[in-house]
Design a protein around this nucleic acid. Structure first.
Lengths: 247, 247
DNA sequence: CCGCAATTGTGCGCAAACGCACATACATCG
DNA sequence: CGATGTATGTGCGTTTGCGCACAATTGCGG
């Protein structure tokens, strides 16, 4: 458990928007845990016993292929949750959730969350809207994979990651980044080299520091912006719902 | 309205699984309409007034880029519905729904469906499970776009389309297929030529007939099979829920 | 049954990314 | 402080798909 990070459910935006009455009902089921770098929250086709609400760090959702290759389809930080299947009812899915950046989360048994969801209160509204955010993410990844260059993928990934850790530094080896994006490690090396040459990033072994974020955004494909817009739009709706509920 | 297709809500699997009590509540809002080839049910960022439950034909969901290029992220037939945003609450999305194969559908005002969804009955269970099916589709498209060849994309697309129209013939020009997949028309021409040379398909202008489906499945990437498995699995759950509700 | 627009076929050269094979550089730990 | 395993850099040939420019064909409307 990260010492610097005091346990506080409000740090997760979804939990933070629940009215006290609803929060109380799930509170006893919540458990604060740390998310260790590389930890696999759930694997392909394994049953998802818990749902995770990160308060810090990033969880990557990777869609896997039989030969072991994969592609990241979503990045989840403190704005979201890991394990929507709990609510959708399908139990498991052919993908994997891996901690990409260490942090912490509240977890709750899938059944408990599902029960509260089905009461039809604010939690339900919040989660449904979050499903749409996720959906948009996955859809945008699909087009991005089809039409954009490796350099653009990397830029998008950097920006999305930075937004979620609230810092300008990412701790991760090039090989792992390549794994996330589903490209070769050498490709990442070259793309990083190019970004460095243009003074957009600094880096050393296992660590990338973005020093010119504006430029990075300009070099990136539209995908980052689209996701940011849509995410902001839906987050606003979430907040207005929470407010109307007197939170 | 297709003359050969008698109006029958049961022809859509989601509607067909509702218990009579629930169906009655939305029945008056249902409107039977025809889906014309090429018709755009809703465009990028336009508000979605209606939700569509196809009884025949195929609707493609295309994620669009600013430069006009796009990529298909989901195929919807009589097993599903078009317009989940109605239920998620986000109103619109950066994608487009186009009729890929003419047919018919029941449509219902988004607000009416949303209201019934929030009663928390069988409709809700059915739709949530369908959201998971959709989710899996989009995610698989993302990996497929990253790792597989044009030839494989085409095979996957043919198989998914055939399953939804219940026939072995697809009426569509190569240019349009290319548009769906987000590749060049010439690439499709070549891939089709290759499939033809291997006696997997016959074709003439604007029409493809699959004559060796087994072979096509073998030549296809795993994506088709993954989607079929997951879709079957979830559909079974949907049916058992409907049964338990005494439908 | 003829003409014409739409559809399909083909031949380039080009660019992006892959696969493989190493060379180099870095940090950590005894 | 030097050894060692991990991380990063680089070269080169190959493949896939794109872009562009036409040629060839098909089938429908008059």
């Amino acid at each position: 458990m990260p010492a610097s990070d005091r346990a506080d459910p409000q740090a997760n935006l979804l939990l933070g928007q629940l009215p006290a009455s609803e929060f109380k009902r799930i509170e006893t089921n919540l458990e604060y845990i740390s998310l260790e770098l590389g930890e696999v929250l759930y694997g392909t086709h394994s049953e998802r016993k818990y749902v995770y609400f990160p308060t810090a760090g990033i969880v990557s959702i990777l869609e896997m292929l039989q030969d072991g290759s994969s592609s990241e389809i979503a990045l989840i930080g403190n704005e979201g949750m890991v394990g929507i299947t709990a609510v959708l009812g399908g139990k498991h899915q052919p993908n994997q959730a891996v901690v990409q950046s260490a942090g912490a989360a509240y977890r709750i048994p899938a059944a408990a969350l599902n029960k509260e969801f089905r009461r039809g209160g604010i939690l339900m509204d919040q989660l449904l809207l979050y499903i749409q955010i996720l959906f948009t993410q996955v859809a945008q990844m699909a087009v991005c994979n089809r039409h954009h260059t490796l350099q653009e993928h990397l830029s998008r990934w950097l920006l999305l990651s930075l937004d979620r850790i609230g810092s300008n530094e990412i701790v991760m080896t090039q090989a792992l980044i390549a794994g996330m994006l589903g490209v070769r490690r050498e490709g990442i090396t070259r793309a990083i080299g190019a970004l460095h040459k243009q003074h957009v990033i600094e880096y050393r072994r296992g660590r990338i520091t973005v020093i010119d974020r504006d430029r990075l955004e300009k070099m990136c494909c539209e995908c980052y912006e689209v996701l940011k817009q849509e995410s902001d739009r839906l987050t606003k709706i979430q907040k207005s719902i929470a407010k109307a509920a007197g939170n």
